[in-house]
Amino acid sequence: MPARRPPARSSSASRIAIPQLDWRAPEPAPVVLVSGPEEVCAERAIAALRDYLRAEDPSLEVSDIRADDYVSGTLLGVTSPSLFGEPRLVRVSGVEKATDAFLTEALGYLEHPQDGATVILRHTGASVRGKKLLDAVRAGQGNGVEVPCPAVKRDGDRFDFASGEFRTAGKRIAPAALRALVSAFADDLTELAAACQQLIADVPGDITDQIVERYYGGRVETSAFTVADTAIAGRYGEALIALRHALASGADPVPLVAAVASKLRTMARVAGSRESTPSLAARLGMKDWQVDRARRDLSGWNETTLGMAIQATARADADVKGGSRDAVFALERMVTVIATRAPFGRSPH
Rank of each mutant, 00 (worst) to 15 (best):
Q141W: 07
T118P: 11
P150F: 15
Q114E: 15
H112T: 12
E146P: 08
E86K: 13
F102R: 04
G94I: 08
A139M: 07
R88W: 02
F159R: 10
Q141V: 01
F102Y: 03
A98D: 00
A101C: 02
A117T: 08
G140W: 07
L121M: 00
V90I: 15
S93Q: 11
H112G: 01
P87N: 04
F102K: 06
G144S: 11
R138E: 12
T99M: 09
H112N: 15
P148Y: 05
E105R: 12
E111F: 11
Y109I: 06
L89K: 11
L110H: 05
E111T: 05
E146V: 01
L133Q: 02
R122T: 07
V137N: 12
N143I: 15
L121P: 10
E96Y: 05
L89C: 12
R138S: 06
L121E: 04
P150T: 02
V119K: 07
A151S: 07
L107T: 07
R122D: 12
D155L: 15
F159G: 06
G116W: 03
K132H: 08
P150M: 05
N143S: 14
E86N: 15
I120M: 03
G125T: 00
L134T: 08
E105K: 15
S93R: 13
A151V: 03
G116D: 02
R129S: 09
L103N: 06
D115Y: 12
R138G: 12
G130P: 11
V147G: 04
Q114T: 14
R88S: 10
A101V: 14
Q114V: 08
P87Q: 09
T124I: 11
Q114H: 10
P148H: 08
G140R: 12
T99D: 09
V95R: 04
G85R: 04
S127E: 03
K132D: 10
R129Q: 14
V128C: 01
V95T: 15
I120P: 09
D135T: 14
G144L: 05
L121T: 00
S93M: 01
C149P: 07
